[in-house]
Design a protein around this nucleic acid. Sequence first.
DNA 1: CACAATTACCTCGTGCACGATGTAGTTGCG
DNA 2: CGCAACTACATCGTGCACGAGGTAATTGTG
Lengths: 156, 156
Amino acid sequence: MDTDEGPPLPLTDMLCFDLYAASRLLTSVYRQVLDPLDLTYPQYLVLVVLWEHGDLSVREVVEQLDLDYGTVSPLLKRLEARGLVVRRRRPEDERSVVVSLTDEGRAMQDRARGVAPAIGAAFGLDEGDAERLRGLLGRVRTSAEEQAVRLAAGAD
Amino acid sequence: MDTDEGPPLPLTDMLCFDLYAASRLLTSVYRQVLDPLDLTYPQYLVLVVLWEHGDLSVREVVEQLDLDYGTVSPLLKRLEARGLVVRRRRPEDERSVVVSLTDEGRAMQDRARGVAPAIGAAFGLDEGDAERLRGLLGRVRTSAEEQAVRLAAGAD
DNA sequence: CACAATTACCTCGTGCACGATGTAGTTGCG
DNA sequence: CGCAACTACATCGTGCACGAGGTAATTGTG
């Protein structure tokens, strides 16, 4: 057992702050790039998964983005108000709502062609380092997921 | 000729999503750990910098956390309402507001002793990988900062 | 001294982000 | 069938997070 309490500012706190700050900073780069398209980063993410997968239920969007219904629901409402997507109840299961791209939503894919390169430049990493970063983040996500479950179980 | 526009889902999009998802996930772990203390993650961050540096002006808190006045101001207001900090106008410069810990704010440091280890477990990285991740994130932050400036200059 | 520029801070509006709660619609089971 | 359990969504309240816009205090300049 390790009773060491570590330095006054433990690495984990700093590491988490780095992650938090880097995430906010990249969102701000997205903001600048997406501003001409009048899109936010989460809205862009929804469009990305729709461009890739076509029609999706709200549930599937929630799963793809790992977000809450309470976040995605009003987000889709705004995208629908903007005319980029439509929401329809599925006839064979009236609980389910299918999200589909409109023509304007599909056209947005062309207008967003410059987004990824600009973000790539923001990272400033070569392919190897980018892959390394992805690997480390993937391990963190897996591990944090487990820890979240562990804590939830412990605080029953 | 090179008409290659890259894969349909470029790595940068996925990498940024990984960062975004990892950041949210770790915040959710913090949420579970900080919930008994009735603190949010940004509130905890403010306390961390105050524990380390002692009295700070609002400006210094903003700089330490790389946040906006519009974010920090109400955040400090809530911390003051909870009795963890006090805000006083600096007599020699009435524009400046000094944030100080109360006794209760200092006492919170003891109660928060378990936070860092729990977060460390969430990362699930050994010291070497943690350092590597920090290094990569540091480079991303530097590079994204430059790109942000570049874009701001380009969109004048 | 006047007064423009700057600094430090606050407030407001919009959009996430999530937990809690509510509500139709569907399924499972005696 | 009757009805409890479950699923898919929506809504609400709170707290960031940031841009825009405002105010008071200080500094710089002629």
